[in-house]
């Protein structure tokens, strides 16, 4: 190019990467932003209904069972689920860092841990759903009374199953994505490409799933 270098950097004239990230990664960010609005809409509709309802069941009396221990343990099982998801998010960060070091074995190792964490979380959710189903809760059915003893609305179980189900589906698809990443890593695909950017994108998705659980956990079990 014979042109003189302009005094002001023209970032958007082409030939440069103004955000300094790869296309796929920035699109993953924008997808996650849109997904945040989807989850936000679900949670805000839940909040609206709760604000419009005079009385609501106490989550500590509904979610108080632990496999093998029986009932009477509020918050215990959901704490376990929360920590499983946090730890699997940590192993995902370590997999991403290993990818930046181009260390195939370490990437594969941490991906396996992350997948196991995801499967453990899904198993916990499957147990909890089964348990609640046997208690008589399902879409359109709510056996739990309000905290003041009056009849509760079925909205309680409708929102619980819809939102935790939608989140669980995200966890499920995250596990599938991580399994695909693991296969590609083991095949040496990323070494051929010269970078592990796909792991970073899968990582963003996985952290988002953890992020959403922070909100779901707070809105359904704590408040």
């Amino acid at each position: 190019m014979a042109q003189a270098v302009p005094a002001v950097q023209k970032w958007w004239n082409g030939g440069k990467s103004p955000f300094n990230v790869e296309y796929g990664k920035i699109m993953m960010w924008y997808f996650l932003m849109s997904d945040a609005f989807t989850f936000g809409a679900f949670l805000i509709s839940y909040g609206t209904i709760r604000f419009a309802t005079n009385s609501w069941p106490d989550p500590n009396h509904v979610f108080n069972s632990f496999p093998g221990l029986g009932a009477g343990y509020p918050l215990l099982f959901v704490s376990l689920m929360t920590f499983i998801l946090i730890i699997s998010s940590v192993t995902m960060v370590l997999a991403v860092q290993a990818g930046q070091d181009m260390d195939r074995k370490r990437v594969a190792k941490y991906l396996v841990f992350t997948i196991l964490g995801g499967l453990a979380f899904l198993s916990c959710q499957a147990w909890e759903w089964t348990h609640l189903y046997h208690e008589g809760a399902w879409w359109g059915h709510n056996p739990f009374p309000n905290h003041n003893g009056s009849v509760a609305t079925t909205n309680f179980s409708n929102f619980f199953f819809t939102i935790t189900g939608f989140h669980g589906f995200h966890v499920f698809s995250g596990v599938i994505i991580n399994i695909i990443m693991l296969i590609m890593t083991l095949q040496g695909k990323f070494d051929q490409r010269g970078h592990y950017l796909m792991i970073e994108k899968a990582g963003l998705y996985w952290h988002f799933v953890d992020l959403v659980w922070v909100f779901v956990f707070t809105c359904f079990y704590l408040i």
Binding site: S65, L69, G70, A71, G72, P143, P145
Partner: peptide, 18 residues
């Protein structure tokens, strides 16, 4: 409206071990 007896049964069950 108070929750019917069968529902209160569900509430009482919470304190016991299955």
């Amino acid at each position: 409206k108070k929750a019917p007896v069968e529902h209160e049964h569900g509430a009482q069950k919470e304190g016991t071990i299955e």
